[in-house]
């Protein structure tokens, strides 16, 4: 990889916007979260606040579907900054994360330049390795903005160790060297949110660079509040039963534990079907909305009656 990263330590940043929001900061973030329909917890508000104040990356871990990504969105709104997202996957490398040259255009442009004998080779080179042929990928985008954006590095644990250590360098230096162009340095480091759902242990070095927040599955009350806010047309009893059922369901040993997203899908589906309560038949018919794994499905179907007992959902049909 023709990528050279030079070391430099920069730790100065002044942001007047931040200073004035210091005093109502916590409240403001809480309001923003509520505005977005995000039912939050003190720990979430606090970590967003501290990450902005200390200007340190925030590492958010937790199972899928608990609203980790939302945090970056809220942060971007709180700072009135752009949101740049880098989705990680296995095999993600620097060309996808940093930059790439637009080869096709470069080649064509070169052909045009050749027609003109007055253009020197050096001029040719400097022209085709200019900014217009540079495809900026998220990380380069994030550091070349005039205003520091919010950079969301999603599912960092999906990328491999090599990328993680590469990222570590970027996170400490905030500069990228492109051999053909020179070094690009961020005026002010972006605000960074990293998310992960623990498919792999992240290195201690990366962790130490971040503030840490773990978001687990919501408690019954919180989940009910989420359901009520996102599916306002839902019957009160049905909402209660769905959330109680989900709490019990997550106690089971499942391959793919359903998240809040599944709860909402289910609530939406059942509300659209105009049900006002849960019973065994309804659950059996619609379980596919909640469970996405064949073995889980079988597992739950076999123990459905027990599950319903615990939940306190007693079907009138069961007693017939």
């Amino acid at each position: 990889m023709p990528l050279i990263l030079t070391l430099a330590v920069r730790r100065t940043h002044k942001n007047s916007k931040l200073h004035c929001m210091q005093h109502d900061g916590l409240k403001k973030i809480e309001n923003l979260l509520t505005e977005q329909g995000y039912i939050s917890e003190p720990s979430i508000v606090m970590s967003i606040f501290l990450s902005m104040q200390l200007h340190k990356p925030l590492l958010v871990e937790g199972p899928a579907g608990v609203g980790k990504t939302e945090i970056a969105k809220v942060m971007a709104r709180a700072l009135e900054a752009d949101l740049i997202r880098l989705q990680c996957y296995e095999g993600l490398d620097a060309t996808h994360a940093l930059y790439e040259w637009n080869y096709q255009q470069q080649l064509l442009h070169l052909k045009i330049l050749e027609r003109d004998p007055s253009v020197s080779k050096a001029a040719m080179e400097s022209e085709i390795f200019g900014e217009r042929f540079l495809l900026k990928r998220p990380l380069l985008q994030a550091i070349s903005q005039p205003q520091p954006p919010v950079l969301l590095i999603d599912e960092i644990d999906r990328s491999d160790e090599e990328f993680e250590s590469f990222l570590l360098e970027i996170l400490s230096d905030w500069q990228i060297t492109i051999p053909e162009m020179g070094t690009i340095r961020a005026k002010e480091p972006p605000y960074v949110v990293l998310t992960g759902n623990r498919t792999r242990e992240l290195s201690e070095a990366l962790r130490r660079r971040c503030l840490y927040l773990y978001i687990g599955y919501p408690e019954f009350d919180k989940e009910l509040a989420i359901v009520r806010s996102k599916v306002p047309q839902i019957d009160a009893r049905l909402g209660n039963q769905i959330c109680a059922f989900m709490v019990e369901l997550r106690q089971m040993k499942l391959e793919k534990v359903p998240g809040v997203a599944e709860t909402l899908d289910w609530a939406q589906a059942l509300a659209a079907l105009h049900f006002d309560h849960l019973d065994k038949q309804i659950i059996e018919d619609t379980l596919g909305v909640v469970l996405k794994d064949w073995q889980d499905m079988r597992h739950v179907q076999l123990s459905l009656s027990q599950l319903l007992d615990k939940t306190g959902v007693v079907s009138k049909f069961d007693n017939l």
Binding site: L50, R207, R208, L211, Y212
Partner: peptide
């Protein structure tokens, strides 16, 4: 930073976020 919100609960939360790593 948290001077204006100095309650025991905010302090605990803030320290937790700063000092834990996993």
């Amino acid at each position: 930073i948290l001077q204006p919100y100095n309650t025991p609960e905010t302090m605990r939360l803030a320290l937790k976020i700063c000092l834990t790593r996993h």
